[in-house]
Design a protein around this nucleic acid. Structure first.
Lengths: 108, 108
DNA sequence: CCGTATCCCTTAAGATACTG
DNA sequence: CAGTATCTTAAGGGATACGG
C-alpha cells in the first residue's frame, strides 16, 4: 500500500473544496452536459459571480470542459472532461463514507 | 451503484476541510498516537490556537480520541478513533488521485 | 506542556447592478 | 443567455501574550 501523503491529498482537496465545486461536479456526473443556466437553476442559492468563478477554476484544472456555441442568444455548456471522470471514485468514496456517517449519527 | 449525493459528500468534506485537518489525520494514521507537542512540531507553521481548534473539531466529530494523563507536566495524546479509521479509504482515494494528477501536470 | 484570550488580517463568498 | 464589475460581509486563520 502506498503511503498517504499530505501533499497528494491536498491537490484532490483543492479541487473539490470551494463551497460549490463538489455540487457542480456531481451535477455534471449525473447530468452529462449542462448549460450555465441549468447549473444556476440547480443551485438556486449561488450567485452568478460565484458560479462563474468556480466553473473557471474547474476548467483551469481541466476537470471540466466549457463549450461556447456561437449563437444568439449565447449558449455555453459544461461537461466533465475524461480527466474529470477520474474524480468519480474519489467522490464515491466520500459519498459512501457520508452515508455511513449519517447512519451512525442517526442511531446514537 | 449508489447515486452520489451532494449532502453525503458534504459530510465527509466538512471533516477534512479545515486547512490542517487532513494533515492532522494523516499524521495520526501513520503515527498511531501523538502528543500535542508532537503534532505541533510536525506542523511548524500552525499556531497553537488553530491546532487546538482543529483538534477539538475532530474530537467533537468523534474522529479522534483525546486522552489526558493526570501528570505534571501535563501530557495529552491524540489518536484516531475506530470510527476515524473508516476515513482511511477516503483519504486513500484522494491520495491516489493526487498522485495521478501530479503525474499529469508534470508531463504536459 | 497544553492550552485560552485578544486582536488583526486575508480571503472566499454574496448582493446587486450592468453588458455584449 | 451568460457573463463582468463593484462593493460589502463573514468566517477562518494567524500572531502574540498569558495561565493552570
Amino acid at each position: 500500500m502506498t503511503k498517504i501523503t499530505t501533499c497528494e491529498v491536498d491537490t484532490a482537496l483543492d479541487l473539490i473544496t470551494g463551497k460549490w465545486k463538489h455540487s457542480i461536479l456531481l451535477l455534471l456526473i449525473n447530468g452529462e452536459s449542462l448549460r450555465f443556466s441549468e447549473l444556476k437553476r440547480a443551485l438556486p442559492k449561488i450567485s452568478q459571480k460565484i458560479l462563474t468563478a468556480q466553473l473557471r477554476d474547474l476548467e483551469e484544472q481541466e476537470v471540466i470542459v466549457r463549450t461556447v456555441y456561437p449563437e444568439v442568444p449565447p449558449r455555453v455548456d459544461y461537461q466533465l472532461s475524461e480527466y474529470g471522470k477520474t474524480l468519480i471514485p474519489v467522490l464515491e468514496a466520500m459519498n459512501e463514507w457520508g452515508i455511513r456517517h449519517a447512519e451512525k449519527m442517526r442511531t446514537r
